[in-house]
């Protein structure tokens, strides 16, 4: 095992561990053990319970899986959209490219969190927790593409002027055929963008959740669990309240430590 890939293996191990915990018989992130609210670590609840008596370890594990899966899916979507838009702008006529880049700049000028809050607050009042989770990550994916598209556009312009593309054009390759040849060459550019987006989306979801605008209860999320820290009365009863924050920081550190050329 190469040491550079250690963060990836640690993340995989964490995800496997979390899946195992969530899949254990009797483990439920929504079950409320009303006789054991806000308890510390015990055999029954290894990381204690929250103020509603829900097992903290199960909730943290489910939040980890949900957040990683959501961020990975959103990142894949946003990278694919950026690849398509960036490549289109690079190989389209100048006027189209100018317009596409202007739209990119308009998106880049909008601060993420404000836009997220705006779209998130305009959701239906009766949206289910699963819907709110899906919509949160979809909105993240919809807003994350412009920076990546700009990078793809620059890379695409470089390729457009390369000798082999000129040769391909001279040989009669056009439109979709050309793009099919170009996309694999943009992979070294797309992978880092994908890897940069994953921790950014995890942080955005946590920040939104901490403001009460993230994934709805009872689905567990990092942001929702950060809200526990707002109640200082709880903090004196058990130190396990800090467990989700500590794990979130560890996950983010691991995500940021993944070598981009891996």
């Amino acid at each position: 095992m190469r040491i550079r890939l250690l963060p990836v293996w640690l993340l995989v191990a964490l995800a496997l561990g979390a899946s195992l915990i969530v899949a254990l018989p009797g483990a439920s992130y929504a079950y409320q053990d009303r006789e054991h609210t806000l308890t510390g670590a015990s055999l029954q609840h290894p990381a204690g319970t929250d103020e509603l008596g829900r097992d903290r370890l199960v909730r943290v594990s489910a939040a980890l899986l949900l957040s990683l899966a959501g961020a990975l899916a959103a990142s894949a979507l946003t990278t694919a959209a950026a690849a398509a838009i960036g490549a289109l702008a690079a190989f389209a006529p100048r006027g189209v490219a100018w317009l596409v880049m202007l739209v990119c700049d308009a998106f880049l000028a909008l601060p993420w969190l404000f836009l997220l809050m705006m779209v998130r607050s305009a959701l239906p009042l009766q949206a289910s927790p699963a819907h709110s989770a899906a919509i949160t990550f979809l909105v993240l994916a919809a807003l994350g593409w412009p920076a990546c598209a700009r990078a793809v556009y620059s890379g695409g312009l470089g390729l457009k002027r390369s000798d082999w593309i000129m040769q391909a054009r001279a040989s009669g390759l056009r439109g979709a055929q050309l793009i099919r040849q170009v996309l694999p060459n943009l992979r070294p550019l797309l992978l880092p963008q994908f890897l940069v987006c994953v921790p950014a989306f995890v942080i955005a979801e946590a920040n939104l959740g901490a403001l009460g605008l993230g994934i709805g209860e009872p689905l567990p999320s990092w942001g929702g669990m950060l809200l526990e820290l707002d109640n200082s009365a709880l903090l004196f009863r058990t130190q396990w309240v800090y467990f989700p924050v500590a794990l979130l920081i560890l996950v983010l550190l691991l995500l940021e430590a993944i070598p981009v050329e891996a």
């Binding site: 202007l102 739209v103 700049d105 308009a106 998106f107 000028a109 909008l110 836009l115 705006m118 779209v119 305009a122 959701l123 239906p124 009042l125 009766q126 949206a127 919509i135």
Partner: peptide
């Protein structure tokens, strides 16, 4: 100026097309 105009149109569009924009608290 073009960017500001685009931002205004884009954010109004985003809000208007959000699935719950027309929701009213009275619906609950």
């Amino acid at each position: 100026l073009a960017l500001v105009l685009l931002v205004m149109i884009g954010s109004t569009l985003l809000v208007r097309l959000a699935p719950g924009y027309l929701s009213d608290a009275r619906e609950m």
